[in-house]
Amino acid sequence: MNVRIRFFAQFGELLGTDIIAESSSGVALDSLIKEVASKNKEGYDAIFDEHGSFREFVIIMRNGKRLDMADAKKVRVADGDEIAVFPPVAGG
């Protein structure tokens, strides 16, 4: 099955902005993003902390609906899902 992953802002610079990931059915959302992000260490480290958890400021959307980060490990992706991974910016 195919899942579209979109990385925004500096995540996109490091990992690519629009990726179609092939995965087996029922894989956990955080595992899939880890797999895709692991191709670039800087990109991976920008999204995940040293324990492999999403950094607390990261925003994840699944099919246009924001995920509560506590659910990111429980959520299973489905064929055709679109996942957006977004880092808020803070400068002014």
């Binding site: 802002a9 500096q10 400021f57 925003i59 808020p88 910016v89 400068g91 002014g92």
Partner: peptide, 26 residues
């Protein structure tokens, strides 16, 4: 807010729309 070539904006009407903490808890 901005960083490099990236930016974000939203308008917050208290008690009617999501506030800054709702959107960015951390």
């Amino acid at each position: 807010a901005i960083r490099g070539f990236y930016g974000q904006a939203t308008t917050i009407i208290p008690k009617k729309s999501a506030c800054l903490r709702c959107i960015f808890p951390k």
